[in-house]
Every structure is written in C-alpha cells, then in structure tokens.
Amino acid sequence: DDGLIYGRGSSDMKGACAAAMVSARILNELGPIENNVEFWFTADEEIGGGDGARWLAETKRFEGDVCVIGDGNGGGMDLPSIDIGCKGGAATTLIARGNTAHGSTPFLGENAISRLIRAIPWVEKIGEYKLDLPSELDEAIRGSLEFYMNTWDLKNDEQREAAKRIYHHPSVTCNIINGGVKRNVIPDYAEAEFDIRLTPGSNPLKVKERIEQLVKESGVPGIEVTVHTRETTGYHETPNSPFAHQLAETIEKASGKKPNFKILTGGTDAISIKNFTGIPCLGYGTSLSGMAHQPDERITIDNLVLGVKVYEGFPLTYKG
C-alpha cells in the first residue's frame, strides 16, 4: 500500500536484478533488435567478485562495447543520475605487539591493546590528507555532492561537513579490532582493520606513504602497518563519451529529467570489468540512498519500474 517492497537486499541490489530480468523478457519478446544484449547476474561483489564478475573479467568471459552496471543509486524519478565511476580502497591493517604478563601484574608486561588504542587515531589522521584529483572529475564531484547532500539523512553540522570532504579527502573508519586471549592475561598482540576509500584519479601510493609516515610519527612502540593498494584505485569514465550521452538520453526520456553525473562512494563490479577487460562501464541502479545493509531495507516500486524502462530502452537506442 505504501509503494515499497521490504527485504534484505531489496535495494542493494536485488531490485535492480528483478528490473533487469523483466527487461530481458521484454527485449526477448520484441524479437531481433539491432544490438546484441547480455544480462549477467553475478555473486561475490561485496568481497571483490573473486568468484563472480572479477573472475569473469579476468578470464575474458565478458565481451562487449559497453557495460551498464545495475549496482548503485540511480536517483529515481526525483534525482536521476549516472555513475561515471566509483571509489577504490586502501585496506589497512594496524598491528600492535607487546609482552604478555599476568593480569594481576600489568606493569610486568606491555599491553598490545593499549598500544593499539594509542595508534588508531594516527591512522585516522589520513582523513585530513588532501587528494590530488584530475580536473576532468570536477563536474562529477560537484554533481556527486549535490546528489548526496540532498539524499543522505545528515542530522547535524558535523555530518554535513564530513560529507563535503568525502571526495577531496580519504574516508577512513576502523571497523574490526582483535586482541586478547583471556581476561587475566596481558595481550601481546592486537590488530585493527580500517576501511579507507579513495576517489578515482587519486594516487593511492602517496596515501600509503602518508599512512606509514603517520604511524611512524605516532611514536607508539611495537606498531606496524600494512596498506594494501595498487598504483590506481577505483575507476572512472569521461562524462563526455557517446556512451554517457546516450545513456543520459535514455534516462531523461524515462524520467522526464536530465540525469546528473556522479561518483559512487562505494565500489562495484565495474572496477574489475573496466580494469581487466577495458570495457567502458557506467552505473545506473534502482537502490535508495542509505538503504544498503540496513535491517529495514526497502525499495520503491517506482524505482523498479523506472529501472525496467532504462534497462530495456538503452539497448534499443544505443548507436555505438
């Protein structure tokens, strides 16, 4: 009755999968069309796609001129948008080592957890590092900020200021901490894992170098850091390609509004597809902002219908 469908994964991204299935059926019923169209449904995206899209891309199963990714938030009827890229990561592990002792005599040991707690804020300082980004992304970053500032539920000035920095600075959050074996044993080992996201076009190796420098500056003994990254991060396409223009025209016809170009704050399978096959990728999803991984996850029926129109309409009008 409320125009919503509830369920885990409904927004991220089973809704887009359902819209794609309906689109595939419609295209099949139309008979032969000018373009060859393939719909791929893959798993494992949340952990890198090693058994899904990444494997398919690495083994060259994917072939095509262009690829539309159904992941992400296309903005629905109100704020239609196209993802021209998405952020990549610099997964970071901080390890603290100490010396064990009995819990009743802590002064005889060196508590690794205490050392870790002291060092964590130094890794978090990477959020103050200004990224050097290509000027061709200026428009997409402006569009991204406009989109997210209007769709995120930002409750206070602190959140709003953080949102404004999301592209020109790394985002950083410590999400996993491990350490200790028993309550009465001083731990000699502890570790923390950080999710650090970088805007495409930035230099992840410079970010890695800065993190290592910050940990050294902390002066905390027994600390080491490992930053997993490559020479490039994420991916992005130009918004000025025929592909982008034609997808934008399809979305405008379906929604009645000219779509915005933006960069996703998270990652999608487009990173693997673009990097391993070279196939240009643009994203148009049906999800709602802020719904991914939520216990009350939901999707609007209007978004699903709009998704069907876009996924069906683009193959019918694409001219290469």
Score class of each variant (00 low, 15 high):
residue 236 H to R: 02
residue 233 T to K: 01
residue 241 S to R: 08
residue 259 P to T: 01
residue 263 I to C: 06
residue 259 P to N: 01
residue 277 T to Y: 01
residue 259 P to A: 01
residue 245 H to M: 10
residue 229 T to N: 04
residue 252 E to D: 09
residue 237 E to G: 05
residue 284 Y to K: 04
residue 283 G to F: 04
residue 266 G to E: 13
residue 270 A to H: 12
residue 233 T to P: 09
residue 220 V to C: 08
residue 261 F to H: 04
residue 279 I to A: 01
residue 229 T to W: 00
residue 229 T to P: 06
residue 282 L to T: 00
residue 264 L to N: 05
residue 286 T to Y: 13
residue 225 V to S: 07
residue 252 E to S: 11
residue 219 G to L: 08
residue 222 G to F: 01
residue 260 N to L: 13
residue 242 P to E: 03
residue 229 T to D: 00
residue 267 G to K: 10
residue 278 G to T: 14
residue 252 E to K: 15
residue 219 G to H: 05
residue 254 A to L: 04
residue 289 S to E: 14
residue 250 T to L: 08
residue 286 T to A: 15
residue 240 N to T: 02
residue 277 T to P: 11
residue 247 L to V: 12
residue 222 G to N: 11
residue 243 F to P: 06
residue 265 T to P: 12
residue 245 H to N: 12
residue 270 A to F: 07
residue 223 I to M: 14
residue 214 L to G: 00
residue 230 R to W: 02
residue 271 I to R: 14
residue 240 N to D: 09
residue 255 S to Q: 12
residue 217 E to T: 08
residue 253 K to F: 00
residue 287 S to I: 13
residue 279 I to V: 06
residue 277 T to R: 14
residue 260 N to K: 12
residue 282 L to R: 01
residue 243 F to W: 00
residue 245 H to K: 15
residue 218 S to L: 08
residue 282 L to G: 03
residue 215 V to C: 05
residue 224 E to Y: 11
residue 290 G to H: 10
residue 232 T to K: 15
residue 279 I to E: 00
residue 229 T to A: 08
residue 288 L to A: 04
residue 223 I to C: 05
residue 270 A to S: 15
residue 250 T to A: 02
residue 222 G to H: 12
residue 228 H to I: 12
residue 247 L to H: 02
residue 270 A to G: 15
residue 250 T to E: 11
residue 218 S to Q: 01
residue 268 T to K: 09
residue 289 S to C: 15
residue 272 S to H: 15
residue 274 K to P: 14
